[in-house]
Amino acid sequence: MNPPPSPPIAHVHVILKPLTPPDALHTLEEALRAVGMGYDFSPQPGGVLLCLGGDGTLLGALRSGSACFGVHVGNLGFLTATNLAGVGEFLRALQAGFYRVEKHLMLEAWLDNQDSPFVCANDLVITRKDVYGILELRLFVEGVLANVYQVDGLIVATPLGSSAYNISVGGSVVHPLCQNILLTPIAPHSLTQRPLILGAHVQLSVQTQKTCLIVLDGQSHHLMRPDQELKIQQAIPQATLLQPLERNYFQVLREKFSWGGGYV
């Protein structure tokens, strides 16, 4: 028999989505006890995080830099490893070391005079503070003016986040293990504006002519003023996802987005 591809896991730290259904938590704890997996509800640095919820719960955990996997009880579950029906099987695979470790690019960004950077696993969105008006965003790549967007907003996404907000506004789907930064305008006021895919090594900066919002992974937001510059680059820590060996990204795409209609 071939040796396991990854180190066996004997203990997990459980993170719950807000208002987790009691029956879901009960089912998870039964599965953990049935396979003899140690667990607690106090995440520790360097530990493995089990995220009971949907993609939002998992994204919040990924930004911590810990290895994570998701057990799906949300609406989409695009990034999660399994659902409650299959959690026992995946826990046994973790104990035996038969799982895959995926390293995904994250982004970091900071405003002028900011002490520590923002970090996102899916996307950073620069968007209007008000429901009306147009944003004029000046994009610099490696210090050179590359584009001036007149838009409702601009998505700066990782490959992992390419299938999130990015795809809903016409951005490209990029395999999540690629090393790229995606730029997708939201409702551009010009027919010539198109999505842009860059290498992960580039350093970007954005300037705005009016106060706008920076939204990180759809979960937190910050104000950006006209006198500030937003700098963006790949983060040093990567997001670490644990996935089943048999998981196939394109099968997930087909199932979640109903690609191919009724064809198998």
Rank of each mutant, 00 (worst) to 15 (best):
H175W: 06
H189D: 04
A164S: 11
G161R: 00
I186V: 15
P185I: 00
N180M: 15
N166M: 02
G161I: 00
P176K: 07
N166C: 15
A164I: 00
V174M: 13
S168Y: 02
L196N: 06
I186P: 03
S190M: 12
V174L: 09
L160W: 05
N166S: 13
V174C: 12
P185A: 13
P176W: 07
L183H: 03
L191D: 12
L160S: 14
G171T: 03
A187C: 15
V169A: 08
L183G: 00
I181R: 10
P195F: 01
P176L: 05
T184K: 06
H189M: 10
P195I: 06
I186A: 06
S168L: 11
A164D: 00
T192D: 04
V173G: 13
G171S: 10
L177M: 14
S162D: 04
V169T: 08
L182Y: 00
I167K: 12
T192I: 09
C178M: 14
Q193R: 14
P188R: 02
Q193G: 07
T184Q: 01
C178T: 08
L177K: 14
V169I: 11
A164G: 10
P188W: 07
R194K: 14
I167M: 14
I186Q: 07
H189W: 01
P195Q: 04
Q179F: 09
V173F: 14
I167Q: 13
A164K: 00
R194N: 09
P195A: 04
N180V: 14
N166R: 05
L183F: 06
Q179L: 12
L160D: 03
G170A: 08
A187S: 15
V173T: 09
G171Q: 02
L183C: 03
P185R: 08
G171F: 08
H189K: 05
P188M: 02
S162A: 10
L182D: 00
Q193M: 15
I181K: 11
G161M: 03
P188S: 05
Q193D: 13
V173H: 06
S168I: 02
L182R: 01
H175M: 14
T192H: 08
I181Q: 04
P185T: 05
Q193S: 15
L191H: 11
L191E: 10
Q179N: 15
P185W: 02
G170N: 09
L196G: 01
Y165A: 12
Y165V: 07
S162H: 03
Q193Y: 04
V174R: 05
A164L: 02
G161Q: 08
Q179R: 15
C178Y: 08
A187Q: 09
R194M: 07
L182A: 09
G171E: 02
S172D: 03
G161E: 03
Q193T: 14
S163K: 10
N166T: 05
S168C: 10
L183M: 12
N180S: 15
L183A: 06
P195G: 05
L196K: 09
C178W: 05
I186C: 09
S162G: 09
L191A: 12
T192A: 13
